[in-house]
């Protein structure tokens, strides 16, 4: 288990490092930074001054190492647009996005896994076909469409839920449904296929031959094995959701990381874009690592290999 974990950790760290290089280069490939910071009316002397002041005249490698060192200390510099540090901007927006992502993922799993299990247990019946239909619908409707539809029905017409913002828990309901909806089909299909495969395996026949109840056979013997690939998928989906929340946060006007990224891209606020890209990537890498560890915990063949 220890060697497995350290192996995975090494992989995760090297991926994170690669992403950091890309994020760093992103800033420099998008044009001359000194010109961007100085603004359209700056003279050549002012630009040179800024270039020196921000250390942009140093070799690229040195700039990267310096940037990485500061990034590791959560110092991403100042926003070009806001009179604030990138770190405090990100820190103030992070909770909204994480809460949204976590609720969405929970919602998606709570709907998709039981649905997948039911579809597998009753495969070929009307239950299976209904679940599949639900799944196709989920794939066909983009998250922002669903979001707008939810707003029209539940906020505008029924007045049950607030239209936008992050004031209370009620504000999170519609965005979570819209964002989680996106993950349901993939998770459901994987649970269904995993369950179908496991249900036809020899050890399920053994479990039935023991005289175990169907619920024990399905929940203890089948689901435990079918859920293993779902864990990895859930981590990946959570990463996608953090990305997808850019759209959803814009639709529901939520002051989260996604909204911040959207604003920053629109305003050429590069340090913010850079920080958001790096942070989301690192979270994604961390999730993948945690999924590997969770898999090892669930599957003794990985753990004890």
């Amino acid at each position: 288990m220890l060697s497995f974990t350290s192996q995975r950790l090494a992989v995760a760290l090297s991926v994170a490092l690669t992403v950091s290089i890309v994020a760093f280069l992103l800033l420099h490939l998008s044009g001359d930074l000194a010109t961007a910071i100085a603004g359209p009316e700056a003279t050549a002397a002012q630009i040179a001054e800024i270039r020196h002041q921000f250390g942009l005249d140093r070799p690229m490698t040195l700039q990267y190492l310096d940037w990485l060192w500061r990034a590791l200390h959560f110092d991403f510099g100042n926003s070009f647009y806001y009179r604030d540090t990138v770190t405090s901007l990100v820190a103030s927006r992070m909770p909204v996005t994480m809460t949204l992502g976590a609720i969405s993922l929970m919602l998606a799993l709570v709907i998709a896994i039981p649905l997948g299990v039911l579809a597998a247990v009753y495969s070929g019946t009307i239950v299976d076909r209904l679940a599949l239909g639900f799944c196709v619908l989920g794939q066909a409707v983009p998250a922002f469409c669903l979001g707008l539809g939810l707003i029209i029905v539940f906020a505008v017409h029924l007045h049950w839920l607030p239209v936008s913002g992050t004031a209370s828990w009620k504000n999170y309901i519609m965005p979570s449904v819209a964002l989680g909806w996106y993950a349901v089909p993939a998770v459901m299909r994987l649970s269904r296929n995993g369950m179908l495969e496991v249900l036809s395996s020899d050890y399920i026949r053994t479990a039935r031959a023991k005289g175990l109840r169907p619920t024990v056979v399905i929940l203890k013997h089948a689901l435990r094995n079918a859920i293993i690939p779902v864990v990895a998928l859930a981590a990946v989906q959570f990463g996608f959701m953090l990305g997808g929340s850019i759209v959803i946060e814009a639709v529901f006007n939520m002051q989260g990381l996604g909204y911040l990224a959207w604003e920053a891209i629109a305003r050429n606020d590069f340090p913010v874009v850079q920080a958001v890209v790096l942070i989301l990537a690192v979270i994604y890498v961390a999730l993948t690592f945690l999924a590997d560890v969770a898999n090892a915990f669930l599957d003794p063949r990985i753990r004890l290999a």
Binding site: Y203, T206, A209, P300
Partner: peptide, 19 residues
């Protein structure tokens, strides 16, 4: 099943639950 009539299967490699 498993109580008064029990069964031993052909494939010992796959007939036990790996988890």
């Amino acid at each position: 099943r498993g109580n008064r009539m029990a069964m031993i299967f052909q494939e010992p490699m796959t007939s036990l639950n790996p988890s």
